[in-house]
């Protein structure tokens, strides 16, 4: 497999990998590094890639596992993920009147979700994967995926409504 062929396979879903990494690691730098790492791992295994039924799902699983490992090692190393891509509070104060700001809340709310819920919500509502794909990717039962997704969506709704009523009151 040549480099162009490889890129043709990988290009369509590299953004998805990045978004997944960012969802889990939060920091854009960390997410970029993780995505790069995954792409390089895929490149190293390019010979076997033709054998995989679904390279995208495979890469997605790799990313998920890589990021979870990363989080685990950070935790055990007693290190906090440092990131600087929060919106500047001062600017957002100015814009607080705009509805647009509550869009950012959703991001914060999603950060607080348990990892499994984050992943499922990311895959379903952002990447628009089917339940079967998610179930296969996460090695879960489709019903379990539904339960997790429902919980995640409800949590987001609950917290969003809470923030809204704060904003009004």
């Amino acid at each position: 497999m040549t480099q162009t062929e490889f890129l043709n396979v990988v290009m369509p879903f590299k953004d998805k990998l990045y978004r997944m990494a960012k969802r889990l690691l939060v920091s854009s730098e960390e997410a970029e590094d993780a995505t790069q790492e995954i792409l390089m791992k895929l490149w190293a295994r390019k010979k076997g890639m033709a054998k995989y039924r679904n390279v995208e799902a495979f890469a997605m699983t790799m990313t998920k596992n890589f990021c979870l490992d990363r989080l685990k090692s950070k935790q055990s190393g007693n290190l906090k993920l440092v990131h600087s891509n929060y919106a500047d509070e001062n600017i957002s104060l100015q814009r607080q009147v705009e509805v647009n700001d509550s869009v950012n809340w959703v991001e914060r709310i999603m950060e607080e979700l348990p990892e499994q819920q984050k992943i499922v919500l990311q895959l379903r509502d952002i990447e628009e994967y089917s339940f079967e794909e998610i179930a296969e990717l996460l090695e879960m039962q489709p019903t379990a995926v539904r339960v997790t997704l429902s919980r995640a969506r409800k949590t987001v709704r609950k917290k969003l409504l809470e923030k809204h009523s704060y904003g009004i009151g």
């Binding site: 590299k14 953004d15 990998l17 990045y18 978004r19 960012k22 970029e32 995505t35 509805v99 509550s102 869009v103 950012n104 809340w105 959703v106 991001e107 509502d125 952002i126 990447e127 987001v156 709704r157 969003l160 409504l161 809204h164």
Partner: peptide, 18 residues
């Protein structure tokens, strides 16, 4: 209206690029 933030965020998040 409260729900629109959720869906707007989802479509916005989908635009992020590596």
């Amino acid at each position: 209206k409260e729900y629109s933030a959720m869906f707007s965020y989802f479509s916005q998040a989908k635009e992020e690029r590596f």
